[in-house]
Amino acid sequence: MQTREMALIMRDALLLPQGRIEVRVVEPGQLRMVADVLKGKYDLAFAAMKPSGNPPCYPTATQCEIIDFNQLEDDTLSIVLEGRQRVSILSAAQAKDKLWMSRTLPCQNWQEEPIKGEFELISAALEQFYEVNPDLLELYSQVHLEDAAWVSQRWLEVLPMYNRDKLVLANQPDCHKTMDFVLQLIKSHVD
């Protein structure tokens, strides 16, 4: 596998493959980074912020693409990112304009698999979650509630947990532990 240079965008959130997130871009270095990514100079990776460390993010990130952008009322830029490929950050350095650049290695994405049996409950619960949070649903042109990997990753993105705990589940070889975790969480709130 080949390493790739990627700009890092870090937030206190998680973005996984096929997920979408909207972020504000304010700093001049980040605006330049958006322009350079759109010009194809380098790829972009989204990483969850870490309280301390250099770089100030966890070593697991997601290569993403800018799929939309809007100018906000306060003249800042909002970009919508879509996760593509999980990556490991091997090294990172900060430029003068405070932009972080990283050397990354691709990781295995979770494979698609059908949701079956009692796990259909986590799919139905995610559908209800999106009904209550239409702003998140609006980010998607289509949802894949039949795919266990897709549903599991969307739950990891929205659950109110520490990023380090989410990444323990996200770094598993498949979605099964996440499915078990979310199912137990839902059942404990139903009982």
Results as ranks from 00 to 15, higher is better:
20 R>D: 05
84 R>I: 15
63 Q>I: 05
53 G>W: 02
141 S>M: 04
24 R>N: 09
94 Q>D: 00
69 F>P: 08
9 I>F: 05
157 E>T: 07
22 E>M: 13
32 R>P: 00
67 I>T: 11
15 L>A: 07
45 A>M: 05
51 P>R: 06
70 N>Y: 12
172 Q>D: 15
118 E>K: 14
56 P>L: 01
16 L>D: 04
11 R>F: 08
47 A>T: 00
141 S>P: 08
136 L>V: 09
11 R>L: 13
133 N>S: 07
70 N>G: 09
187 K>R: 14
110 W>R: 03
93 A>Q: 10
150 W>F: 06
123 S>R: 03
111 Q>Y: 15
51 P>A: 07
101 M>E: 02
97 D>Y: 02
72 L>C: 10
73 E>R: 12
54 N>H: 10
60 T>A: 08
16 L>Q: 00
71 Q>Y: 12
183 L>I: 03
170 A>G: 03
187 K>F: 07
182 V>E: 01
94 Q>M: 04
175 C>Q: 14
108 Q>H: 15
104 T>F: 01
95 A>V: 02
22 E>Q: 11
158 V>E: 05
52 S>G: 07
50 K>T: 04
61 A>V: 03
26 V>K: 02
109 N>A: 09
131 E>M: 10
15 L>V: 12
123 S>F: 07
84 R>T: 15
28 P>R: 05
43 D>H: 10
105 L>Y: 15
7 A>S: 06
124 A>K: 15
149 A>V: 09
144 H>Q: 13
185 L>I: 04
112 E>N: 12
54 N>Q: 14
23 V>H: 00
126 L>D: 10
110 W>N: 03
133 N>P: 07
88 S>M: 13
108 Q>I: 13
115 I>C: 07
66 I>K: 04
145 L>M: 12
132 V>I: 11
172 Q>I: 10
148 A>E: 12
130 Y>F: 15
20 R>K: 14
122 I>L: 12
79 I>R: 01
148 A>D: 03
106 P>N: 14
71 Q>D: 14
158 V>I: 07
1 M>R: 12
190 V>N: 12
49 M>Q: 04
127 E>N: 14
13 A>G: 10
184 Q>F: 09
60 T>C: 05
174 D>V: 08
37 V>Y: 01
